[in-house]
């Protein structure tokens, strides 16, 4: 029967909306409020003597300890020593990881040899090799830097060859069709195309460098955040121990911030 154009709209129910959720959005300031609330609760628990200050020093005690170490310059000595090791180890590990990762991504023979090798060695906890590195490089700086470099190498290599693999083949064929020499194709197409994956790898490798520097500094180091934490723990100076942990957390945040800025600058085209 044809619809009657003059009839009033039929009564009925509104179609229910079912498309909500699964699109998490950031709430500005929520993290700051939650963080402040946590510290306030912690401070309140300490001030009310609900927890033993030796087992869990209050935020104010930790801040005082940080201030005291900063005033004497001790804090900067430790931070500088750790940063130097991180930067050196990360730079060596990243350079080698990028080189090997690109070679695995670009050359069949290197891939055939390198891929199983990297897969086999990646899961080894690198800190387990520190005693071996001490034998090879001595107890000083080189063994610590080598541990960090090795830890950084594997995730960087894996991220690099994965990123090279993900560069659209159509772009490489396009560059070939215009007669670009192979080196130009790598420089102008593969490298920028792989950059997002490489930068994601940097986030992981930077975190690994931070973990490994602390572990390495716990073995015969006089300076560094790891040495500070270990010494404070031995002397039951838990406020200093947690001050060291806070510094590590801040270092992690700074590294993440720097990498975030780098990504935003280099990947504006996305």
């Amino acid at each position: 029967m044809p619809p009657d154009a003059t009839a009033a709209p039929a009564a009925g129910r509104t179609v229910p909306f079912r498309g909500g959720g699964f699109a998490p959005r950031l709430h500005r300031g929520a993290a700051l409020v939650a963080f402040a609330a946590l510290i306030a609760a912690w401070q309140a628990a300490a001030s009310l003597k609900l927890v033993n200050a030796l087992f869990l020093p209050s935020p104010l005690q930790i801040a005082a300890s940080l201030y005291a170490m900063a005033a004497t310059g001790e804090l900067f000595l430790h931070v500088a020593a750790s940063l130097r090791r991180i930067l050196l180890g990360w730079a060596f590990g990243t350079a080698a990881g990028l080189g090997v990762g690109f070679a695995i991504g670009l050359f069949g023979l290197v891939r055939s040899i390198g891929l199983p090798l990297v897969s086999a060695l990646f899961p080894i906890p690198k800190i387990a090799l520190l005693p071996l590195f001490i034998l090879w490089f001595g107890i000083g700086e080189p063994s610590k830097v080598a541990t960090i470099a090795l830890g950084v190498f594997f995730p960087t290599a894996i991220a690099a060859f994965g990123a090279v693999d993900n560069v659209p083949k159509s772009l490489i064929r396009m560059a070939q069709s215009f007669g670009l020499p192979p080196f130009d194709i790598v420089r102008k197409v593969v490298l920028p195309g792989a950059l997002p994956g490489i930068l994601s790898g940097f986030r992981i490798s930077a975190s690994i460098a931070l973990i490994l520097v602390v572990a390495a500094e716990m073995i015969n180091a006089q300076t560094g955040i790891g040495a500070l934490v270990l010494l404070a723990g031995s002397l039951m100076q838990t406020d200093q121990l947690l001050a060291g942990v806070v510094v590590l957390s801040v270092l992690g945040l700074v590294i993440s911030f720097v990498l975030g800025r780098l990504e935003r600058r280099l990947l504006r085209w996305r």
């Binding site: 560059a175 007669g179 130009d184 920028p192 195309g193």
Partner: peptide, 19 residues
């Protein structure tokens, strides 16, 4: 299209000439 997304229009065209 096979355009390099990180290059501008002009730079994409320049790719064909740079070498």
């Amino acid at each position: 299209f096979a355009l390099l997304p990180w290059r501008t229009v002009e730079a994409n065209i320049a790719l064909a000439l740079e070498h």
